[in-house]
């Protein structure tokens, strides 16, 4: 079963944790499911809102060290909210 992977026909980032910077100033960290006409579909998503809790870099560092603290089990980030998207970690 070495190397056994499900979902081999999915988009390249499927199953990979990504960070999405939003036009609203929010930052989303979650497992990429797919991108479609509605937006980027993420699973097990942590959300950072400016001015609410830790500064962004500290919040990101905490997610890296202790794992993603899930705020939403599933979330669609609308395409017009997505400024950029990249691998987390």
């Amino acid at each position: 079963m070495s190397g056994h992977v499900f979902h081999t026909n999915r988009q390249e980032l499927h199953g990979v944790t990504v960070v999405v910077n939003g036009a609203s100033g929010k930052t989303y960290v979650g497992r990429y499911h797919e991108r479609n006409e509605r937006g980027v579909v993420l699973k097990d998503v942590g959300i950072h809102e400016p001015g609410n809790g830790l500064p962004l870099e500290d919040w990101l560092e905490r997610q890296r060290k202790f794992g993603v603290k899930v705020d939403e089990r599933a979330l669609v980030v609308p395409n017009d909210e997505v400024v950029d998207l990249g691998r987390f970690g």
Partner: peptide, 26 residues
């Protein structure tokens, strides 16, 4: 540490000294 799977915890004398999260594996 937040739950994720797969993941790995290295424990020494009852203390977590290293953790590999799922996001570090993907």
């Amino acid at each position: 540490y937040q739950p994720s799977s797969p993941s790995m915890a290295l424990i020494r004398d009852g203390e977590v000294v290293h953790f590999v999260h799922r996001h570090q594996i993907e």
